[in-house]
Write a protein that binds this DNA or RNA. Structure first.
Length: 418
RNA sequence: GGGUAGGUACCGAAGCGGUUAAACGGGGCAGACUGUAAAUCUGCUGAGCUCAGCUCUACGGAGGUUCGAAUCCUUCCCUGCCCA
């Protein structure tokens, strides 16, 4: 038999880090009923499978979902395979390309794999919204859209801005919030989680649930974590993200690159810092004798540990110190063998063939700017050649390392020598 | 349906017949510096080559005028706004 923590215990944990809970008293009531009837709440989190690469910004809300699971509630992850075909309006004036159902399905699977790095697999249900949205007839859609008005939809900030500034809004984009709201009605969610940018959509869910005669969900919003630049929100398009699938080394380095004033935020929302630890770090950062770098290291280690384990966090730290403090080379460097007709190759070509540079022009620039090192020796002449008969260590910029060697092949019949 | 304003490189935005691979800003990359992959400063930022030079591709698409077009003309596509 399940035992739920007390109301206060639940609320303390649920409130921590949340921006808004609307309306909070309804949540309290729901939890009270849940404890009394010993019945878990249904917690909804929708995800957009058009972008299957999760980053730490997405993690904020997943961590919250996990807390609900730990409290004994039932998590439903909705993969928006159907809505993915529409694409959530991003506020950008470009309407995004639509994906096919198959594509969104594949992405959804990838998404799930990553999400379960944070979510528990117990008390987790995964639903695809094509299940109900795909079944709706045009009549159903009209019925649904009759329950909401254009003016209400235009209240949404990004619609509003686009409308006022004369940028296009397609009708299907307007329909998106309604589709998402339909999900809530379909699964009877008690609580829906989302980033603060989702507030509008989440609230529409309440209205639509009421319109279909079910108890409205409570919405809980989490902040949007800024990216490594500390300015824009974390997003792939700003290239300021830390992906779940980043290597420990990259993850660590990226955390180390955040501005000092972001340390606490990353610690709380990215590293899952407890209230107690956050307080402690806050005090430390206030003291002059404390080096903010140490707080960053702690945050970085903890974040790496979530995705790669504690040991990986320690190793990443060691590597980082090696590369940047001691300007040394990392322990593990990727190796690559190139098929060549001659062991002596122009360095520029090698850079392009190994994808260290995207084009020969770019390779030339890198060399001329002194960004390329072979076996520790800086090469300044873009015409330089490199002998690949033994393994060479090429370094491009501060943090790209590659061991390259040549693999002689016969041009005529493609046979390998060696 | 009528009128009108637009569509420029990764993004924003100049240019409105030649000296424009296209000002400026952001972003990105490299170098110096640093606790730091932060901040700051400097440089670079379409591609290929027999590389202080040459060639090709590029200003929504397709044609045309011209010695020469992102810039002028025709036409098509896309978008905003106003009127109906």
């Amino acid at each position: 038999m399940l035992m739920f923590p007390t109301l206060n215990e639940q609320m303390d944990l649920i409130r921590s880090g949340a921006v808004e809970i609307i309306p909070e008293d309804e949540l309290i009531k729901k939890i009270e009923v849940s404890i009394k009837k010993n019945k878990p709440l249904i917690i909804k989190l929708g995800c957009d499978p058009s972008k299957p690469d999760l980053h730490i910004g997405h993690a904020v809300v997943l961590h919250k979902m996990r807390q609900f699971q730990d409290l004994g509630h039932h998590a439903i992850l909705i993969i928006g395979d159907f809505t993915g075909m529409i694409g959530d309006p991003t506020g950008k004036n470009v309407t995004r390309p639509h994906l096919t159902l198959e594509e969104t399905r594949i992405n959804g699977q990838t998404y799930l794999e990553q999400a379960t790095m944070i979510l528990s697999k117990d008390r987790l249900e995964v639903r695809y919204n094509s299940e109900w949205l795909g079944e709706m007839s045009f009549r159903d859609v009209i019925e649904l859209s009759a329950k909401y008005t254009v003016a209400q939809l235009l209240e949404r900030d990004d619609f509003n801005i686009r409308y006022k500034s004369g940028q296009p809004i397609s009708v299907h984009e307007l329909l998106y919030p309604l589709a998402q709201a339909m999900d809530s009605a379909a699964i009877n969610s008690d609580v829906e989680l989302g980033g603060t940018d989702q507030k509008f959509n989440l609230l529409v869910g309440r209205e639509i649930q009421k319109a279909y005669g079910t108890e409205p969900q409570v919405i809980l919003t989490m902040p949007l974590l800024e990216g490594t630049d500390g300015v824009e929100k974390m997003s792939k398009s700003y290239n300021n993200y830390i992906a779940f699938n980043d290597t420990p080394r990259d993850m660590f380095g990226k955390v180390m690159s955040i501005p000092d004033n972001m340390i606490l935020r990353f610690f709380r929302y990215g590293a899952r810092g407890t209230e107690k630890d956050i307080k402690e770090m806050e005090e430390q950062l206030k003291s002059d004798s404390f080096n903010p770098r140490d707080a960053k290291v702690r945050t970085a280690k903890q974040i790496v540990a979530i995705y790669h384990g504690v040991e990986a966090g320690e190793n990443a730290l060691a590597e980082f110190e090696k590369i940047f403090k001691n300007k040394d080379v990392p322990d593990e460097i990727e190796e690559m063998r190139l098929d060549v007709e001659s062991q002596v190759q122009p360095l520029m070509d090698v850079l392009v063939l190994t994808s260290l540079a995207p084009s020969k022009k770019e390779a030339k620039r890198l060399i001329e700017q002194g960004g390329v090192t072979v076996d520790g020796e800086r090469i300044g002449d873009f015409r330089a050649e490199i002998d690949l008969s033994k393994e060479r260590l090429i370094k491009v910029g501060k943090r790209k390392f590659l061991k390259v060697s040549g693999n002689l092949i016969d041009k005529i019949n493609g046979k390998m020598y060696q």
